[in-house]
Design a protein around this nucleic acid. Structure first.
Lengths: 113, 113
DNA sequence: GACTCATGGTTTGTGAAGCAAACTAATTTG
DNA sequence: CAAATTAGTTTGCTTCACAAACCATGAGTC
């Protein structure tokens, strides 16, 4: 037996995108051409360390491009979303939409404080 | 600086619910009073082992109640969602809805095959 | 010039998580 | 009675996410 409706889609969610910290990063990147590391750090509340490691995973997965350069004499890391990243995000969004259709609306029983 | 809109909500998602396998379990349980272990196993495609461990986590978290008995001479494990489980699922659903508002709609650039 | 502090990250360490495979135990079947 | 099925649990392995430590450069400042 298989799961009814589109609920089974939930098992196919892309874990690289599904992780909250990375989903946040991707969503921010989707709204800009290029974003600095430090901006993302402030925006997300992630520590530099965690941001760095999530960034590397997204880069390895090909969802994000990382460009390292210098601003004056200081290092500057900028991130941008790739075409594959946009596709992955769109696919994730779509699967999520189907999953949400199957989740029950809050009822009177669940609404009480 | 904080993240704009409701995007920051993504970092507050309940990890116990966010895990796909458990979300699937909760969604199924939300649609029935009581469900047998074996039914859930078939429905989800999870191995008994994985199902057992996710079940334990949900039980420990108080989102699910587990009732062990016998059917004839064989063990029978039945799961049901608790009130806390329904609330957690509803809260998750709601946060997810806010996150999805912020995710970009697929555009022409991402739509091509 | 030696110290300290800030900037911009990367590396390392650790506890927890998810999954597959092995195991337990009872029962039914050949 | 041996083999296979049912119904789960336990164990072991690999990966993960996060925090803390670390590294390198630059800018005061005494």
């Amino acid at each position: 037996m298989k799961t009814p409706g589109h609920l089974g889609e939930v098992m196919a969610l892309d874990r690289l995108v599904h992780e909250p910290a990375r989903l946040l990063i991707l969503a921010v990147l989707a709204g800009a051409k290029q974003v600095e590391f430090g901006f993302l750090e402030n925006m997300s509340g992630l520590s530099k360390g965690n941001l760095s490691s999530h960034m590397s995973k997204l880069e390895t997965g090909g969802l994000v491009a990382v460009k390292k350069s210098f601003r004056g004499k200081r290092p500057l890391t900028e991130l941008s979303i790739t075409a594959a990243g946009r596709r992955a995000l769109a696919a994730y969004r779509q699967q999520l939409a189907m999953v949400m259709q199957e989740l029950p609306e809050p009822t009177a029983a669940t609404k009480r404080k």
